[in-house]
Design a binder for these strands. Sequence first.
DNA 1: GCGGTGCTCATACCAAGGTGTGAGCGGATC
DNA 2: GATCCGCTCACACCTTGGTATGAGCACCGC
Lengths: 209, 209
Amino acid sequence: MPRAPDETPTVHIVDDDAQLGDGLSSLLRSVGLNAKTYGSTAEFLRADNLDSPGCIVLDIRLPGTNGLDFQEGLVKLGIDLPVILMTGHGDIPMSVRAMKAGAVDFLPKPFRDQDMIDAVTAALGRDRQRRASEQHAVAIVDRYATLSPREREVMALVTAGRMNKQIAGELGLSEVTVKIHRGAAMRKMGARSLAELVRMADALKNRTG
Amino acid sequence: MPRAPDETPTVHIVDDDAQLGDGLSSLLRSVGLNAKTYGSTAEFLRADNLDSPGCIVLDIRLPGTNGLDFQEGLVKLGIDLPVILMTGHGDIPMSVRAMKAGAVDFLPKPFRDQDMIDAVTAALGRDRQRRASEQHAVAIVDRYATLSPREREVMALVTAGRMNKQIAGELGLSEVTVKIHRGAAMRKMGARSLAELVRMADALKNRTG
DNA sequence: GCGGTGCTCATACCAAGGTGTGAGCGGATC
DNA sequence: GATCCGCTCACACCTTGGTATGAGCACCGC
């Protein structure tokens, strides 16, 4: 059974200390994980599988960039991989800032191997979960994109609980036309019941993308 | 316009150092907040307004209890107030643990007044938001409690997108009976459309309480 | 026992949803 | 100019949903 490369998660280790990165790498490989090391954030950003499953293990003290700033900037770059931070010279405010920004964990060096493995496991779990719900949301957005403007208007009112007659009134249409758009929306969205359509509409509202 | 006592949030300060507690208290009062001090967790738990809006400022080093353990135990006690932790002798793992457990902030002593004010403001904001959605959820749960077992079964299948005919088949009923239960569920839940009922059903699923 | 509640169903009627046929109009594309 | 697409609507037909009337049965509490 061949597996798509997307399915094996990668742990991206960003640390300017090559020796430490290699040590981490072999530690993670020893428990069956895929690891890749980078000496700088720039090098990391050149990687090609940043949309694939995985997580980031990031040293705070890095040449050029601050690890915390980099972590907070990742979202803007469209990279949603969970982040684990580590540092040799950290303090409490740094760790709090990192956690507020959504870090999975914050490990002061030196850390125990098991703590890192636990953190990585948690991060990969979080990534898997995010991916699952994201995948679902993207499918809905894609289908929604095929709706005509009118169909979207009608769908909005239908999922708001309005009756066809009311929708016809609000949009200045005849009831038949509303039914046609409504049916088209159901078909294009792949909804087999009104309940499904309502949930899709809610999913569309709650997601930014 | 008289205000219910519930509407003015209270900052609960739990610190065995009375002097520090009083200082904090006057700081918060100086910015127009309601503050109350407690010398121990036991004393705090005897307070009567733990269900009212507010937040907790908690010292980690406390007589008898560990602040972190106490924080994590609050949920089991049914207290959902946001927590701000402070400590004079903290380390990074402690702060990370606290943040993972949902703390709003973690302030090492000594901290700047403004940092505490910011943290409290954020905590009260979080509490207000939680309250708003909780209030909505509680109303739905209350109404759901008035449904008969059959009505709940029917509601579950209706909101799953099944047709009356299918529901009748699955439950071994006639279609008329399903319609009656369905109508009763709509009436008791106060839903004026199927879309509303679907959203209520989802709200019921996603909330524990 | 009596009333209340929950559950069940038949019949009947009306409202609302869903689909198909057929058709006209305007804008974009080739 | 022909074609495609989106939008519009009338007419007709059928399905599904919603409600009311009337009725029977079981259980519980007073």
